[in-house]
Design a protein around this nucleic acid. Sequence first.
DNA 1: TTTTTCAGTCAACACATGTTCACAAATATT
DNA 2: AATATTTGTGAACATGTGTTGACTGAAAAA
Lengths: 217, 217
Amino acid sequence: MSRETPARGRRPKRGRTRQALMDAALDLVAKKAPFSSLSLREVTKRAGVVPTAFYRHFPDMSALGLTLLDESFRTLRQMMREVRQQELPNERMIRGSMETFFTYVRNNRTHFLFVSKELYGGSATMRQAIRREIRLFVSELAMDMARFPFLVQVNAEDLQMMASLVVNSVVALTQEMLELDEDDEAGQQEMLILAEKQVRLIYFGVAQWRSEAGAPA
Amino acid sequence: MSRETPARGRRPKRGRTRQALMDAALDLVAKKAPFSSLSLREVTKRAGVVPTAFYRHFPDMSALGLTLLDESFRTLRQMMREVRQQELPNERMIRGSMETFFTYVRNNRTHFLFVSKELYGGSATMRQAIRREIRLFVSELAMDMARFPFLVQVNAEDLQMMASLVVNSVVALTQEMLELDEDDEAGQQEMLILAEKQVRLIYFGVAQWRSEAGAPA
DNA sequence: TTTTTCAGTCAACACATGTTCACAAATATT
DNA sequence: AATATTTGTGAACATGTGTTGACTGAAAAA
């Protein structure tokens, strides 16, 4: 922390411009339109930089988008790792996972908002990339579930089905939560409880599955 | 079916322009960008009409959007009615509902695509409107579920929770299906089966619910 | 220190956008 | 048949857009 305050008049902002552009875009997405309807000039203006400076860091807007996606994914994966490694007793497991997950969402609101909007509204490449990531998430969850004693004899396909059900539900609730006001504590808490209940309900169904519904139609 | 072929040179297209604009927008949304990044001129061009003609039918683009939303909702409600009124025996019920639902999705692809993209990517008013419609859907499903013999003693809140779980899951699968190619028969069928399985799984959980998980934490 | 590379500015362009206005054709009303 | 109203057209505007090129100060490498 040595030389700040860049001389007044010409401000160098020594390298942070790239990040400033990304943050600006994220901000705009969070409180305005989807990324696809963001203009280059809009982003640079918010970043406090002249339009042409953009090209020093990204060839075009879609490149910025992909970088943003990458940054968001890093957050997501880190969260996933944290959720998976905390081995809790069966009863507390669901609650614990949901808590750390939603905490992550709150602490990385703009990232999740960005991903949420791009999941269906973004370009084809974006949507594909996000879906791939989600599928990965589903597979890992399925692997974890395979270790449950009462699921040892469920085939891989059904495990995948169950995991995707859990993930889809949590994703939906996450998107609903993002719709809430940022500091609506009560609403957020309500969402957490709802999420826990729903996942628990699914696990009830899962526990029942092996016996009855073996063969597909 | 009297006077077609509009005289060549000046074409009258006697009133159909409004619908042409709506269809054009829907088309563009289906095979290109989200609605918010559509330009007025783009839409009019695709509708085969001069930009200024737009104002004869809508004050601005967002009005077009709301009209489109309304049109899509009519489709949705009609589908809902049809699903609800077919009282099938318990075993066939889930399968039957899913089949008519997904048939509707296929037959109104552009509408569902539009709604799907607007759900998270659209303007605040749009998102709210769609969410309201979904909540309505959830409430009706909860009412239907309340009549199940094994659910009579589940409280209203939990019924709502279960219904929202079902709806969220089906919505997610619908969006996944819309990502598929339009004439990927195999993929669509697969989605249908997956949907049925997931809903059935949820119902297993539901059947188990009443006994164990009464009180919230 | 000198030189090279990096990261910002400024001016300018060609083009797409939303919107206006006055006008004309098609249709509806009388 | 005469008139009024709706619906589409054309020209024109101010503004916002992506992108170019030449230039310049700051930081890094020599």
